[in-house]
């Protein structure tokens, strides 16, 4: 409940933030604080320096255009959950945002903070992977873009370098005849995902599966892709049987976590159930 001492900086530009991070190698970036501060209060994390980017201009907001959507890193979960434009183009992300924590957490927690923290049970990573989102990171050498598939490295670890700040999330443009959905099985205590699955499905002219992209969170140490299910769906007529058969393979090869809330076996089972549900919903939306 009482964080250890730290030095505090509140830059007003991204470049200032990056310069501070370059100077203080053990510094942590503070956005909404809803991932970092809880660990600091329990003294599980004791960063000597905090770089609070909360006052940096231009990092919050959602832009939805034909070329895709961009979401600023400081955009709160509540803002994302309430965005009608975003929901129209990409309901999975508004769904995921609406299921994070609780109302107060959504009011403060930011998408950039959540993604940078890379909690294995966070909701967004499944969506990022399924939608093929890109993360814009700014560092001392300028900006670069990291695809979601390469962003989540391992438990609480991303592809971000210590002196980089995640500034923006970009979602690809909406494709006709495609749909997406996020389905979650919450931990009854923390509300984090015991397992969460996002499915993105594109249909061909005959209503068959042209492409499937499925992201899984909560089940493993890091968010991952249900490759076998994606392959099994491709080109298939989508009905209850084909979806069930494909979803049954969603946990194949996954190294699922085991803890007091769910065994690895149960998590793997949940992944298959949630995958089927997410696909069904995505298909319904694609039609």
């Amino acid at each position: 409940m009482f964080p250890a001492k730290f030095e505090y900086y509140a830059p007003t530009t991204v470049n200032q933030a990056v310069a501070l991070l370059k100077k203080h190698r053990d510094a942590k970036v503070l956005a909404g604080g809803h991932s970092l501060l809880p660990t600091m209060k329990l003294r599980l994390a004791q960063p000597p320096v905090l770089v609070d980017i909360g006052k940096v201009k231009g990092l919050a907001g959602i832009k939805v255009a034909k070329g895709g959507a961009t979401i600023g890193a400081l955009t709160t979960h509540a803002t994302i959950a309430a965005s009608k434009d975003l929901r129209k183009q990409c309901p999975a992300i508004t769904e995921a945002a609406a299921l994070i924590g609780d109302m107060q957490v959504r009011n403060r927690g930011t998408i950039g903070g959540s993604l940078s923290h890379a909690d294995p049970a966070a909701d967004y990573p499944a969506v990022m992977i399924a939608l093929g989102a890109e993360m814009k990171a700014v560092g001392p050498k300028g900006a670069r873009t990291i695809n979601a598939s390469h962003f989540f490295k391992s438990l609480m670890t991303t592809a971000l370098k210590p002196s980089e700040v995640l500034t923006e999330v970009r979602l690809p443009p909406h494709q006709p005849n495609s749909g997406c959905a996020y389905v979650k099985f919450p931990n009854p205590a923390s509300r984090f995902a015991v397992a969460g699955v996002c499915a993105w499905i594109a249909l061909d002219a005959k209503g068959r599966c042209a492409k499937a992209s499925i992201g899984i969170t909560g089940a493993c140490a890091t968010a991952t892709r249900a490759s076998k299910t994606e392959a099994a769906l491709r080109g298939k007529e989508l009905n209850e049987e084909t979806i069930a058969a494909a979803a049954a393979q969603a946990a194949d090869g996954l190294d699922c976590l085991s803890d007091i809330h769910a065994s690895a076996e149960y998590r793997a089972h949940l992944v298959t159930v949630l995958t089927a549900r997410a696909i069904q919903q995505a298909v319904a939306r694609a039609k």
Binding site: G33, L37, P38, K41, Q104, V105, N107
Partner: peptide, 8 residues
Amino acid sequence: AVKSCTML
């Protein structure tokens, strides 16, 4: 509405 214990 914000949880004031999770905010500096």
